[in-house]
Nucleic acid binder design. Sequence first.
DNA 1: CGGTTAATTGAACGCATTCAACACGAGTGG
DNA 2: CCACTCGTGTTGAATGCGTTCAATTAACCG
Lengths: 217, 217
Amino acid sequence: MDKPYSPFAADDRRPAAILIDAVERLGGSMRFSRDEEIYAQEEDADRLYRVVSGVVRTSRFSADGRRQIGSFYYAGDLFGFEVGSRHVFAAEALTDCEVRVARRGAIALAAGTDKIDEAILGATQMEMERLQAHVVLLCRRSAKERVGAFLAAHARNDPSAETELPMSRQDMADYLGLSMETVSRMLTRLQDEAIVDFGSTRRFQVRRWPALAAMAA
Amino acid sequence: MDKPYSPFAADDRRPAAILIDAVERLGGSMRFSRDEEIYAQEEDADRLYRVVSGVVRTSRFSADGRRQIGSFYYAGDLFGFEVGSRHVFAAEALTDCEVRVARRGAIALAAGTDKIDEAILGATQMEMERLQAHVVLLCRRSAKERVGAFLAAHARNDPSAETELPMSRQDMADYLGLSMETVSRMLTRLQDEAIVDFGSTRRFQVRRWPALAAMAA
DNA sequence: CGGTTAATTGAACGCATTCAACACGAGTGG
DNA sequence: CCACTCGTGTTGAATGCGTTCAATTAACCG
């Protein structure tokens, strides 16, 4: 099993091992093209998903049309268990992607109900940790810090390499609770301060990791 | 068992029934006076708690000293299971209160590991729903809407009765991601618009429920 | 009562938004 | 190969919302 990479996951991913395994063995493979819906807001949440390749985005529209991005999921990540019996967020393919899907019932049969509950609990708690960190980020941090933290999360696996951002500025904005323009401004500012260096609009290189990492804390 | 009241809980609290029961039967009773710590940030999370009387607040200090309030828990609410093995938030008595406490291990022995995992999973998912709603609130809503939603959540059980707010303006501010002054200003504004009516600083009556409820959506 | 903390109000500031114009890149067709 | 277009991203200027700092008032508790 290849080591999963996710900028948003907590470091310890052990509890999910059994789920990853089960989805891998019992799941069917599906392909989605860019912007295609994987599941809808309010849809029954009786499946577990794992990204094989590409990137998935979860989002939610409020009554007034404002969009909130829940998270981004990368190759190796599990998703679709964020909440109770119905999905609060919809999931869409951010890029063309391949996803493995397994019914919860099938996993429970194969692994035992207690095992799956324990594993889902572990995975859910990791997700919750991320959410709590996100609340703090949104509540207590400036636009520059939010954007910096976002870049740091994406670069953290290999800060010396060039990092690709698969999502649009609008996606970043809707995740960070900012306007697209502010995201753009903060990016140029981080660039002006020689903290990062954007080769193209969606590729960047970290110049001063300590300064960037400090924003993620 | 009296019906639990919590302004922040999701409507369906069924999954937690077994936990409530277990904590009730196996737990010991503890009393805390105002502002006393129930458990600390980073402390081991091997216990489950249930509020018998009074109000509990969970909070977290970041490195730079800024405080974030996680949630408030009222009589009947379970808390202490927000996340993995260590508490991310600390818990304090907001008012003098009585709390029942049980070790997870004891509950598992009595109810079976699978049962407790299932129940904790259900409770965790409810907590996550609240967190997701909170993220949307913080990301996408104005100060007035946030304060309105907060009041609506507290008044929703009995919108025609007078509602008491047990927490300070600063607590509200740290929960809503606003400054204390802004909270105060928005409250007077809601009062000026005849949406609510404050008899004293911590007691209010809803005047126009539809207008207030609209902010909670 | 006086002393203390909590809450409100005012004024000035600053950060992020909004609206608008412009730049850039990829793809298309002449 | 260049002109054109469309989507995406950047930049500028003006506005406004929420913060900050400071002063005042209200509630609480001895």
